[in-house]
Simulated assay, not measured.
Amino acid sequence: MTETPIEEMSFEQAMRELETVVGKLERGEVELEESIRLYERGARLKKRCDEKLKEAEEKVAAITTDAEGNATGATPVDGL
């Protein structure tokens, strides 16, 4: 796992670490206390990913609308 604080991670960093956490939990390769710690970290990583996706969605919305909130011709991306 990385030493980077979760709140400073990029979406990609958080997603990679979340995948690692999920893999360890799915394989059951850690003891109960470590599983609980990993689950908690995974929840914080998921929250970070959600935050970064929301930021991206807001940026896309700002780029694709004019001052009155009308679409400027760009097509919204599904899921963002």
Results as ranks from 00 to 15, higher is better:
Met1Gln: 10
Glu40Leu: 08
Glu26Cys: 07
Pro76Gly: 00
Leu18Asn: 05
Lys47Thr: 11
Thr72Pro: 03
Leu80Phe: 08
Gly28Pro: 02
Ala74Asp: 07
Ile36Val: 15
Ala62Asn: 13
Asp66Gly: 04
Glu58His: 08
Leu38Glu: 12
Glu55Lys: 11
Cys49Val: 15
Pro76Ser: 01
Met1Asn: 12
Glu33Ile: 02
Ala71Tyr: 04
Phe11Arg: 12
Gly23Leu: 06
Asp50Ala: 12
Ala14Arg: 00
Glu33Met: 06
Asn70Asp: 06
Glu17Lys: 00
Ser35Ala: 15
Lys54Asp: 14
Ile6Lys: 00
Thr4Gly: 02
Val30Ser: 04
Arg48Gly: 03
Glu33Gln: 05
Ile36Asn: 09
Gln13Val: 10
Lys46Asn: 09
Glu19Leu: 15
Glu31Leu: 11
Phe11Glu: 11
Leu80Cys: 07
Lys52Ala: 06
Cys49Tyr: 04
Thr72Leu: 06
Thr65Ser: 12
Glu31Met: 08
Glu40Ile: 07
Thr4Pro: 01
Leu80Gly: 01
Glu33Ala: 05
Gly69Gln: 06
Thr4Tyr: 02
Asn70Tyr: 03
Asp78Arg: 12
Gln13Cys: 10
Gln13Asp: 11
Lys52Phe: 02
Arg41Asn: 08
Ala71Phe: 03
Ser35Tyr: 02
Val22Ala: 09
Ala62Gln: 07
Arg37Trp: 04
Thr20Lys: 14
Asp78Ser: 13
Lys24Trp: 13
Lys46Phe: 12
Lys54Cys: 09
Lys24Thr: 03
Arg48Ile: 05
Lys24Ile: 01
Thr72Trp: 06
Glu12Arg: 08
Thr4Asp: 01
Thr4Phe: 04
Glu55Tyr: 07
Glu51Ala: 04
Leu45Asn: 04
Glu29Pro: 04
Glu3Gln: 14
Glu58Ser: 14
Ala43Leu: 15
Val30Trp: 03
Tyr39Lys: 15
Pro5Leu: 00
Gly73Tyr: 13
